[in-house]
């Protein structure tokens, strides 16, 4: 009986979490709403920011994809390391520390990660962390420079970190295809496509 009650209690708590947490998140944009559509706002602005730039999208997906390609523990260490180092880059951006060729660095991240996936290069974990971390600084710096002008910096940060994480998860989910027949080829092809996309950004074609 006690176990049953506990189970009901846990289920109720989970239901509460499922209802309340989205409300907490979705309650913010109304407060951050501004009449000027060009003004950097709150959660939705931050959440949509990585999706607006294909250079960001490609790199974030590539991190997850490469993590899945390298297998455990990289599959979950890379998506943990990336936001932490990206935040460090964000701090540099907020502090106004100049970083040369930020946009080129972001585009280069897609090229390098895409090539690594396409060529099926398996690096040691520490090298993977350094590679992903270096590019994370460029991505973070780009976000950080926009952050001080945000209407609601905390909800903006939550939005873009969440979107970044979801893009990693998408990459991981796609990368898990390597376990099925033909999946390895699909993942390597996706890597090549990411590299081509990154190269077109780097050369200013896209």
């Amino acid at each position: 009986m006690m176990i049953q009650n506990r189970s009901i209690c846990l289920r109720t708590s989970t239901l509460c979490a499922a209802v309340i947490l989205p409300l907490l998140l979705w309650g913010q944009p109304a407060a951050a709403h501004t009449e000027d559509p060009g003004f950097v706002g709150g959660f939705m602005s931050g959440f949509s920011h990585p999706f607006y730039g294909w250079d960001h999208v490609l790199a974030m997906v590539a991190v997850g994809l490469w993590g899945a390609f390298l297998g455990r523990p990289a599959i979950w260490i890379l998506p943990i390391v990336f936001p932490l180092i990206m935040a460090f880059g964000g701090v540099l951006g907020i502090a106004g520390v100049p970083l040369p060729a930020v946009e080129a660095g972001i585009a280069a991240s897609s090229v390098v990660l895409g090539v690594l996936i396409a060529l099926a290069l398996r690096s040691p974990l520490w090298i993977a962390i350094i590679v992903v971390g270096c590019f994370g600084i460029f991505h973070g710096h780009a976000h950080g420079t926009e952050l001080p002008s945000a209407n609601s910096p905390i909800t903006y940060s939550i939005g873009f970190v969440l979107a970044t994480g979801l893009l990693h998860l998408f990459g991981i989910a796609f990368g898990l295809l390597i376990g099925v027949p033909g999946g390895r080829l699909a993942v390597r092809t996706a890597g090549a496509a990411i590299a081509v996309g990154g190269l077109s950004f780097l050369l200013g074609v896209w």
């Binding site: 932490l84 935040a87 964000g90």
Partner: peptide
């Protein structure tokens, strides 16, 4: 947790 740490670090800097 890594995402929360990233947000907290950004907020501190801000």
């Amino acid at each position: 947790a890594a995402w929360i740490a990233a947000i907290a670090l950004l907020m501190q800097a801000l």
